[in-house]
Nucleic acid binder design. Structure first.
Lengths: 131, 131
DNA sequence: CGGTATCCAACACGATACTG
DNA sequence: CAGTATCGTGTTGGATACCG
């Protein structure tokens, strides 16, 4: 039996041979530009496609589709396509998605609260060299 | 004085006129590919440039430099350049950076714990259409 | 309505070479 | 050692047009 000579032999989020580690991919999906906004929006209620698009604002159809597909594939979002005319598709969070959304929202709120500090730090940094 | 007519008038992380909102930028910096790894590494101790580069692995000089500069400018990382020959530069977390790093690390750990669920979800998704 | 397909510009990123 | 500068390329993401 191999003795554990190294604690944390594979560092957190380290890449594997050719490509990113799986957890890095998940992290990327839930913190992606539109992924964050989708998760936070769906936390309040379920949305239809175009409704969600208006709710978020500034997202192209392509990117919203792509984001929703990725989140659905990862098991964060449930897609409910009703076979009616005109088509109607509702998106909701799965239990996993709710967990993710709450964490991401907390992070987003913390980030917002941080903005003044960060902008002050940037001003200091820029002034100390830009001048 | 302006009265607050709208609760949540500007949705969380919404973009402003031409460009991303400030908090989105901060979120992007701390969750960026190398930003995450830098913060987590510096949480254990301070590192010199090349030391940090080896510790992380797979990061180019350019990207590490860029990441460190961004994090320094935002006030998450402190850069201590000692005027000696050969040059020696130590990087440490600021108090703000420690806060960020702990949150990011928690998120990363949660993400890792999630990988089996996500991979199972993906397998289900792919099978239900790929076939 | 809820997508898909295609095109294209912008940029992120790595490799390499060079500097203080 | 700790960067900076430059270049080339692959990916990202928006606009547009079309489909069931």
């Amino acid at each position: 039996m191999k003795v554990s000579t190294e604690v944390q032999a594979r560092p957190l989020l380290a890449d594997v041979d050719g490509g990113m580690c799986p957890s890095r991919l998940v992290l990327e999906h839930v913190t992606s530009r539109w992924g964050v906004l989708v998760l936070i929006a769906l936390l309040e209620r379920s949305y239809r496609f175009s409704e969600l698009r208006r709710r978020i604002g500034g997202v192209s159809e392509k990117m919203l589709t792509q984001t929703l597909q990725t989140l659905e594939r990862d098991g964060f979002v449930h897609r409910d396509a009703k076979p009616v005319i005109p088509p109607r598709v509702d998106y909701t969070l799965t239990p996993l998605g709710e967990d993710a959304a709450r964490r991401i929202k907390a992070l987003a709120l913390w980030t917002e609260s941080l903005v003044p500090d960060v902008e002050a730090a940037r001003a200091r940094y820029d002034e100390s060299r830009g001048q």
